[in-house]
Amino acid sequence: MASTTGRPRDSRRRLDQRGWIFVAPFAIVFALTFLAPIGYAVQLSLFQDQAFFGGTAFVGLDNYVLLFSDTRFWSGFLRVMIFLAVQVPIMLVLALVAALAIDSARLHAAGFFRIVIFLPYAVPAVVATLMWGYMYGTNFGLAADLNDLFGSEIRPLSLDWALASIGNIVTWEFVGYNMIIFYSGLRVISGELYEAAALDGAGPFRTIFSIKLPALRGAIVIATIFSIIGSFQLFNEPNILRGLIPNVLTTDYTPNMYAFYLSFGGQQYNYAATVAIVMGVITAVIAYVVQLRGARKGT
C-alpha cells in the first residue's frame, strides 16, 4: 500500500518540477526587466547626492518628505488629474459611439470607417504631435487659416488652451484603439439576445441600454484602466510641443516630464526616482480602485 500511495505523490512532484522548467524563462525575464528596475529605483530614492563631499548618502525617506511639499510636482499632478477627468470620458464616449455605430447594421461601409477611425493609432506619437503642432500654429497652419477666415484669434498653444490641445491630440490618437476594444466586445454578444429583444419589441436604443452596454461592462473597465494609466504617463505630446512653446510647457508640466528633466537635465537621479515611485504607486492604486468598482458593479 505504501508503494501505491507514493507513486501519485512522486508523479505530482515531477509535474511540478516540469512546470517550473516551463515557467522559468518567463520568471527570469520578468525579474530582470520588471522587478530589478523597480528595486533599483526604490534604492535610488533612499539616497541623496552630497554636493560638497561627492558621492551619495543614505537619507531614508527624506526624498519622499521633500516630494510631498514640492509645489512643482503637485502642480503637474493636478494638471494631469484635470486632463484625466476631462479627456478620458470624452475619448471613451467617442470610442463607444463609434463602436456602436460600426456594429449596427444601418451603417454602410462599416469596415472602411473602422479602418479610418483606427488609423490614427498606427501613427507614431511623435509624428502625430508634430503634425498637430504645426496645425496649431497661429502664424501658419490650420489655426492661422481659421483666424484669417473668421477674423478670430484662436491660439491653441496658449497657456489657457495648451492642455485642451494636448487632450485633442491624445483623443485623436487613441479613440480608434478603444473603439476596437468595444467593438470586439460587441461582436461576442449572442445573436439570440438580439432576437429575443426584437420579439419583445425593443427598439435600437432599448437594445443598446439593455443588452449592449451591460455586455460591454468588462471592456469599459479595461479601457478605463488603460486610459488612466496612459494619462498618468503623459509625456510625449507635451514634451514634443515644448519645442514650440517652451514658455508655456515648462519642464514640470507633467510629473513624467518633471522626473525626466530632473534626471537627464539636472542630474538629480535620486529625486527623479522618488517621483517615479510615487507616481507608480498612485497609478496602481487608482487603477485598482477602478477595477474593484467595475467588478462590484458586474456582480
Rank of each mutant, 00 (worst) to 15 (best):
A144Q: 13
I166W: 03
A162Q: 11
Y134L: 11
E153H: 14
L146I: 10
Y177K: 05
E173Y: 00
L130R: 11
L119P: 02
L119R: 01
Y136F: 15
I189H: 02
E192C: 01
A164V: 09
G191S: 09
G176T: 07
Y177M: 07
L157G: 12
R155H: 03
Y194E: 10
L186N: 05
G151N: 06
L186Y: 06
S165Q: 02
N139I: 00
Y121S: 07
P120S: 10
L186I: 04
I115T: 15
D145G: 02
F182H: 13
G167E: 05
F118Q: 10
S184K: 06
V175P: 01
D148H: 10
I154A: 12
F140H: 11
F174L: 05
S190K: 05
G137I: 03
R187P: 00
A144E: 14
A144P: 11
I180E: 04
P120V: 09
W172R: 14
N147S: 07
G185D: 08
F182G: 13
F182S: 08
P120L: 14
G176A: 03
A122P: 00
M135H: 13
I180H: 05
S184I: 08
F140A: 14
S165A: 15
S165R: 09
G191L: 03
Y121R: 03
T171D: 04
I115Q: 06
A164G: 12
A128N: 10
V116F: 11
L193M: 09
N139M: 02
V175A: 07
L193E: 12
Y194K: 09
F174Q: 04
I180C: 01
L163M: 15
A164L: 14
S165N: 08
P124Y: 00
L186Q: 00
I166F: 12
A125I: 08
L157C: 06
W161R: 09
N168S: 14
Y177H: 02
S165G: 07
S184H: 02
G167K: 02
I115Y: 07
N147M: 09
W161E: 14
N168Q: 12
Y134N: 09
L159W: 01
I180Q: 04
S190E: 14
V126P: 07
A162V: 15
F118M: 12
M179Q: 02
V126Y: 02
T129S: 13
V123H: 03
D148G: 12
L146G: 02
E173F: 01
I181K: 01
F140L: 12
S152G: 05
V126F: 04
E173A: 08
E195S: 09
R187F: 01
M135G: 04
M131F: 15
D148S: 10
S158A: 11
V126I: 15
P124D: 06
G191I: 02
I189Q: 09
T138C: 04
R155V: 13
V127E: 03
V123L: 09
L146K: 03
P120K: 10
A144L: 00
S190D: 15
L142M: 05
F140Q: 14
Y121C: 03
M179S: 00
A128Q: 11
V116N: 10
L163T: 15
L163Y: 01
M131Q: 08
E192T: 12
W161S: 14
Y134I: 13
W172H: 09
I181A: 00
L130Q: 09
E192K: 04
A122C: 11
S190V: 00
A162D: 06
I169R: 08
